[in-house]
Design a protein around this nucleic acid. Structure first.
Lengths: 254, 254
DNA sequence: GAGTGGTCTAGACCACAGT
DNA sequence: CTGTGGTCTAGACCACTCT
């Protein structure tokens, strides 16, 4: 017995064949909105692919493309012989490679950066190795204090190959580094992160309004673009009393 | 000018149309192997989709499905009007939802668990809330010390709804919890993790061979199955001097 | 203009789940 | 058995990139 309701989308989803937006994406977007908006509650069974295709006057592959898009995001689950259901998990967003700035902005915490260092320097061998660019002559070094609500949260140190971006201090004050990199036309592809912990030194403590010996989170990250170049290397410390890393993971669970 | 070599796969990829393995997957698997094995070096341009289809005697949509599969994994990059290239990043695995046990086993560190608690208890209101099951009467509680190379690494506390699994202490000693859950037929779907840091209490210190006040990493995780049920909630502490979290992220970079 | 991936169609047969 | 999603084909036209 299956008592789950079946949702008929034909009344709610409208596809404009003349729109430049792909039809599969129009369907996926409106389906996504219906799920997020609660009009398609968790557990709802979708109409079959053939029914959807008939209702929306699209071919089945197009419908499948739309559904697959949402399955990849973890919003829908398909089972052969059974049907397609809305996943019951509340937040099913895939893990994003995000920056502290984006995270805080998403929370409405009005993040700010105080720029301590923003300059191009000769690259020593260690730094060049971290950027995986052995012959690199010059690097841009950034050192910022990130605050929210008037309280310091983190000290962030970044190294970038010279020439990628040339941000003014004001840019860094109001925008995340990732945002600036994307604006410069870079396509970020992947990153390696290492998250650890250590005790605050006297210098950490002074910058972060903590006591020496307080618990700090550390994060080191190397970010790559599509061509495999290192775009940025960062070493950051966060006040454990005021910050933690939150990850939403879907798919590929081992 | 484009000096990138173009790889002709016809010599290396063999598709058996009578195999139960889907054809698109046969192509994707062998392409994946060629990339991992170095026969398809980073930066190589693939033959066009039409050429591949002709060479392998498959239709273009099937070829596209194979390529899309690897694009989703971050191994290939497609650009309209240009072509498909092997990504230059070394490690482009998507972030996996993995357990400490899996991580250590992958490193050949021969992880072991000492089981301190493995029993079913009445569920109090707080625990039921953590498992998002308000009426829950009984929970299984686990408390384990995870060690590798004779040194303790972490103290792990888990809560599971009663009835999902009934592991013997020996199972827990030699297998990760995720492994046991999958063996029980559960399909893990997503998880929410929070990573933080704090100082070691006297109890932490005794269990982990650390000094009180040492830096510890903390991780809390809620794991969901496909139907949205909470499968497991865990609160763990790790010795920051001997452990850190390593994440490989691809796609969805913000 | 030539070549590439992006989208779309209208079918077909198969594998699996539930009855 | 019926219904579902999974796979596959052989075309078509469009949008973008580079020359």
């Amino acid at each position: 017995m299956n008592t789950s309701p079946v949702w008929d989308p034909a009344r709610e989803i409208v596809v404009d064949p003349d729109s430049p937006e792909p039809r599969y994406f129009q369907v996926a977007r409106q389906l996504h909105a219906a799920i997020e908006g609660g009009r398609l509650p968790a557990g709802t069974r979708l109409a079959t692919e053939l029914d959807l295709a008939a209702s929306l006057r699209l071919s089945r592959p197009t419908i499948r493309q739309a559904i697959q898009f949402l399955v990849n995001q973890g919003l829908l689950v398909r089972k052969r012989g059974v049907g397609t259901q809305v996943v019951r998990t509340k937040v099913a967003r895939p893990l994003r490679l995000s920056s502290l700035f984006d995270d805080l902005a998403g929370l409405g915490a009005s993040p700010r950066s105080q720029v301590l260092v923003n300059q191009v320097e000769p690259a020593d061998a260690d730094t060049a190795a971290l950027l995986e660019a052995p012959g690199l002559a010059r690097v841009r070094r950034l050192r910022r204090i990130r605050s929210a609500g008037g309280e310091p949260l983190a000290v962030m140190n970044n190294y970038l190959p010279d020439g990628l971006v040339d941000p003014a201090d004001e840019d860094l004050r109001d925008h995340g580094l990732y945002q600036l990199l994307r604006s410069a036309g870079l396509r970020l592809h992947s990153a390696q992160q290492e998250i650890g912990a250590r005790l605050a030194t006297a210098e950490d403590a002074a910058l972060l309004h903590e006591q020496p010996g307080a618990a700090l989170l550390t994060m080191q990250r190397t970010t790559y673009d599509e061509t495999g170049r290192v775009v940025e290397y960062g070493r950051h410390v966060y006040r454990a009393s005021r910050y933690s890393f939150n990850l939403s993971l879907t798919n590929g669970l081992r």
